[in-house]
């Protein structure tokens, strides 16, 4: 059963890694706006302004 000597700590470390990742994501506010996170992925905020489709023009909004 010598295998347990390193497998059990390994399992615990993995679990702790997951826990710290969760606590970090919580602290950095990733659970504050769940609906926003779902739709933000659709916005092209990585493109330069002129390459963006003109969807951000204010006139478009009022339907």
């Amino acid at each position: 059963m010598n295998v347990l000597v390193y497998l059990v700590p390994l399992a615990l470390l993995l679990g702790l890694g997951g826990l710290f990742a969760f606590l970090w994501s919580l602290k950095s506010g990733q659970y504050d706006d769940l609906d926003g996170a779902a739709v933000r992925v659709l916005s092209d905020d990585d493109l330069p302004d002129n390459a963006r489709p003109s969807s951000t023009a204010p006139e478009r909004h009022r339907s």
Partner: peptide
């Protein structure tokens, strides 16, 4: 709509001196 997020944040960031503008879509 989702497009409102970018519209609002970019519109407010365009003001001089504004450093951050973050919209919470849930609230």
């Amino acid at each position: 709509c989702a497009a409102c997020i970018g519209e609002i944040e970019n519109g407010v960031k365009a003001l001089p001196g504004v450093v951050r503008a973050r919209l919470n879509y849930s609230t």
